[in-house]
Design a protein around this nucleic acid. Sequence first.
DNA 1: TATTGTTATACTCTATAACTATA
DNA 2: TATAGTTATAGAGTATAACAATA
Lengths: 143, 143
Amino acid sequence: MAADAVAPDTAAHEAWSLMGRLFMDMRPRMLRVASEFGLSPPQLIALKTLDPAEPVPMSGLAQALQCDNSNVTGLVDGLAAQGLVERREAEHDRRVRMLVVTERGAAVRARLVEVMAQLPSELAALSAADQRALRDVLRRALG
Amino acid sequence: MAADAVAPDTAAHEAWSLMGRLFMDMRPRMLRVASEFGLSPPQLIALKTLDPAEPVPMSGLAQALQCDNSNVTGLVDGLAAQGLVERREAEHDRRVRMLVVTERGAAVRARLVEVMAQLPSELAALSAADQRALRDVLRRALG
DNA sequence: TATTGTTATACTCTATAACTATA
DNA sequence: TATAGTTATAGAGTATAACAATA
């Protein structure tokens, strides 16, 4: 809607602004995926954040999501109610609850990751050479 | 936390995944900016979406934000309470309210756009040649 | 009748503070 | 005393449905 041509006039800023457009386009897709799986967006992100192969304490998830522990309680309640994750006792400390992704949770998560990894059409349309160039530059940036 | 190396093994998918990391890094910055301006994240996005030079009806903002009209009522209430936007009558149709960004709103919005345009350090650290290459590929992708 | 915006309602997200059970 | 997680509470985002004013 608004013009937004206010960013500093450098190649990197223009590139960053263009990337912003790609991400704006992804928002509706994420909402669609969330509702398709019967998950709210935060629940979706929480499930995607969890590693099916490596249980973490509630506090670890809170840290990864950059939110308060008390918030994670509700998110996990929702995921657990659908049988996607389970709370287990930790051996070393009886205060902590380890989050375990169930088999069903892992399957849902895998489909989730797959769908969210789908390329925006603008990137898919790039030539193979451009796709490699893009990857190489971003590798150097994020190494 | 999770590995997520599940995406198809192409250059474009790797690039897309790397871009995802850049955006994850931007979330805390957006939250910080929002609280710095005394705005909630949705209010922030709403203000950024509005064009100070071109009033739009409430429904136009709802469409741009991809949410229900009823939601915009509350968002605009908040922005209006801080004197950042005003509701005006439309000449042609007495049902519609046009949203006008106030002078103060435009100033806040300008600072907002400026802060959000700041480059992630990973991009700023790229060589000038890489920055140009990145821009050029993205230009070809997004026209 | 259809549409714009608001209000009523309900549910979720989120944080803070108080509480529990451990440590 | 300090920490992990929960609960209580409060405020904001969001959608649906009902409504008023206008088209």
